[in-house]
Nucleic acid binder design. Sequence first.
RNA 1: GGCGCGGUACCCAAGUGGUAAGGGAGAGGUCUGCAAAACCUUUAUACGUCGGUUCGAUUCCGACCCGCGCCUCCA
Length: 494
Amino acid sequence: MPLRLFNTLSAKIEDFRPLQNNEVRMYTCGPTVYDYGHIGNFRTFIAVDILRRYLRQSGYKLRHVMNITDVDDKIIRNSAQAGVGVQQYTAKYEKAFLEDAAALNIEQPQLVRATEHIDEMADFIAHLVEKGFAYRTEDGSYYFRIAKFPAYGKLSKKDFAGMEDGARVDVDEYEKDNARDFALWKAPKPGEASWQSKIGPGRPASHIECSVMSMHELGESFDLHAGGEDLIFPHHENEIAQSESATGKPFAHFWFHARFLLVEGEKMSKSLGNFHTLRDLVLKGHKPSSIRYLLASVPYRNQLNFTDDGLQQATASVERLRNFQGRLMTGKFSEGLNPGIAKLAGETSDRIRAAFDDDLNTAQAQGAIFDMVRAANAAIDSGAIQKADAFALLTTLNQFDEIFAVLKDDDAPKMQRIADWAKAEGREKNITPELQNLLKSNELSDEQVNQKIEQMKAARAAKKFADSDAIRAELTAQGILIEQTKEGVRWRRK
RNA sequence: GGCGCGGUACCCAAGUGGUAAGGGAGAGGUCUGCAAAACCUUUAUACGUCGGUUCGAUUCCGACCCGCGCCUCCA
């Protein structure tokens, strides 16, 4: 069964097949690096990451490009306020974004930057002017002439016939032929970053970079273009208009949009005080894996309500999966195979695949894996699991985690890095006791913990329970959770 | 105003024209020197309200109520 994906362009769920052979070419509208990334950003990028990972798991080769917008109005404004150059300003936030994405196990696509493609953009605009799709105004700005592209509105399902009334005309844009015409290139203004180019001095307007860079890297027609739902209009609509006018060919075939999330039931906004960057959340003591899991839990086209409670629940779910994995990896199983378990693992694997094939239904995939966890745990308890079974179960669990990417327990070092950043930035007051508690578990190395556990085991064997309890208490205080099970002592970092 | 999405148990959240996945939380239990953890079991006479279609609707249609999104910078 092929992957079926919702395509914003057709407004339908369609079979996804690459245009060329087995290679998927996709482009993501990446961040504008003017501030630290917030969880809304990361919901989108995690949705894309899930798509990306699943395409690879499905056997496709992948060419995935994402832009970094490193010049725009906000950047110019903020860097001026901060009193640093645009370059220096964006470098800082690009680095932060990439670190945060990595903390969330978001795989990094090939990156392209707007400021590194100024010449290509100027060429592209010149070409549009030649073909009559764009025009220059007296101040040296360039605009796209919407009247020349009748399909305008096909992505956002807007009908622009006779809809010019109500559109505001910016003071700076008094020379536009039509109020809906959008900027391709902005003439220089005093104090703003500006480039020399074959179409004159200035800087690229907000939509041009994605058209130019995506086609530059992926070709005039490519498979998939992704971003947040807010980009449908005007950003992606404008990209389509520019690109298809320039080439006369269909631009992206699939348009993938992630829905906005809510925070505590309301739209996330700075004024409501529910605006969370990833770093804020970590400083409050939330693990990156919990955040990723929660953001991945609700299928990308549904509204996701991001709450503190949800984060706790996600943490518990991840723990359960990790415990299950730990049981399988450390358990002592006899040689052999139980056909019932092999069947369970196989069926679960199919269910997971079917769930992702169904427009990336992550919630269904979770349902499948937890059904397996429950049945397999019961089987372990009853002694029905043998070595080959444990292996089969782990294989299915890994299949799940190749997409979800939450099993590996490396939260502590990631959180440590963010704590270190807070200190370096003079934000140590934002480091909560909750985070400090979690970081404690990072202080002991695996060897140190194992040593302590050997001491504890020895004390228990000698029935010196007071001694063993003392060691256990010490480890607990260090954030190390001890589990004494039939299969032996297991531990993990809290 | 235009276009669109959603309202499922205490919370989060899938899903289906034939009477409801999964997770969390609660309760009970197993294991254990104790504890913790882990594990198991259990928890919706019905899916916003009211009508309609149907042998049968939570699932289709209509109206209404409520929440949310886009139309303007925003992932």
